[in-house]
Design a protein around this nucleic acid. Structure first.
Length: 310
DNA sequence: ACGATTATTGCGTTCTT
DNA sequence: AAGAAAACAATAATCGT
């Protein structure tokens, strides 16, 4: 429980408003890892300028020995601090004698074994590999990836992996972190890329959530608008309108107990119809992972309420 | 493609032991 | 208090236009 708050990364604390989003003119926020548009979810840059020292070494300047090496990353089990032994050259770039090469080959083999000496470390490597794979397949940013890896480590420390598949825990971590960051992906979407079924992902998330007490608020329809609008190439106006509709839906309480993605899809349909940008129901429903019937039901219920309030 | 009707599923409530 | 069951709402499937 001591590590509870590490998932709340800089998103809340170090946020500094910068300029506006080129796509929708929405407000843009930057944390330590990436710059994201609040309105459309567009990631403007996940290669933020690093104010730290250069990652170069200057052999002639011996006074500054710490200015070497690659930046640390939590998504590698050794945080990127691995040692590699070259095959053909020594530290100064000279080529090696065959005897030395043989010796170094043996050293390299032992070093490789030492790098993940325990099953714990091996599991962590496999878990991180899986996380990196899923996160990049979903198009989520570096910040999400690093938070997910941190959560995975915590899960490992709390002994939550016993009897569960590593792949399921990794996928569950991705799901949990995406939700904690208000960038919800459906379990189905994650399971599509994960090496396990939906139930395993759900179960893994449930375990993480209860055992670690994650700050996971229920997903709201609003959070689904950006990704859906972007997937269907809808205009910023439609997107803004749809967000307003989600607010209406919330006030009227018609999203209670409903799949938020379905409500979001209905809001988008109404908004796009208003703007004359016609979207096929089946496409909208497919992107939101709901049936067209559900989409229509929500749309009609919402339309009724909207007429009443006018 | 869209709409209406019917079937299924999931879940909180209520009843029983 | 714990489990079973009837009940309801959300969602999906199917058929008709």
């Amino acid at each position: 429980m001591a590590t509870r708050n590490i998932y709340k990364t800089a998103v809340d604390e170090d946020v500094q408003p910068t300029n506006t989003c080129p796509e929708c003119d929405g407000r843009v926020t930057t944390n330590t890892h990436e710059t994201v548009c609040d309105d459309c979810g567009l990631i403007l840059s996940d290669q933020a300028i690093d104010p730290g020292p250069e990652w170069r070494s200057f052999p002639e300047d011996q006074s500054n020995p710490e200015r070497t090496g690659a930046p640390l990353t939590p998504s590698l089990h050794d945080q990127g601090l691995s040692t590699t032994i070259d095959k053909h050259h020594d530290g100064k770039g000279r080529s090696l004698s065959p005897q030395k090469q043989r010796q170094l080959r043996r050293l390299r083999r032992e070093q490789g074994r030492a790098q993940c000496s325990t099953t714990r470390e091996r599991n962590q490597m496999r878990g991180f590999y899986e996380i990196r794979r899923i996160v990049s397949a979903l198009g989520l940013g570096r910040s999400i990836r690093d938070q997910t890896c941190a959560l995975f480590t915590t899960a490992q420390n709390e002994d939550l992996l016993h009897g569960r598949s590593l792949e399921a825990i990794a996928a569950g971590c991705v799901y949990a972190i995406s939700r904690c960051n208000s960038l919800p992906r459906s379990v189905a979407e994650i399971a599509r890329f994960a090496k396990c079924n939906e139930d395993s992902v759900r179960n893994a998330f449930a375990v993480l959530n209860t055992e670690l007490g994650l700050p996971t608020p229920p997903p709201t329809p609003r959070q689904f608008i950006p990704q859906l609008a972007s997937a269907l190439c809808l205009s910023p106006e439609v997107r803004h309108r749809a967000v307003e509709f989600t607010e209406q839906a919330r006030k009227q309480g018609i999203d209670n107990g409903c799949n938020p993605a379905g409500v979001a899809a209905a809001c988008l349909e109404l908004a796009s119809n208003d703007a004359g940008e016609h979207v096929l129901q089946c496409e909208l429903a497919a992107k939101a992972d709901v049936s067209t019937a559900t989409l229509r039901n929500h749309r009609d219920a919402l339309a009724e309420k909207l007429v009443e309030t006018q």
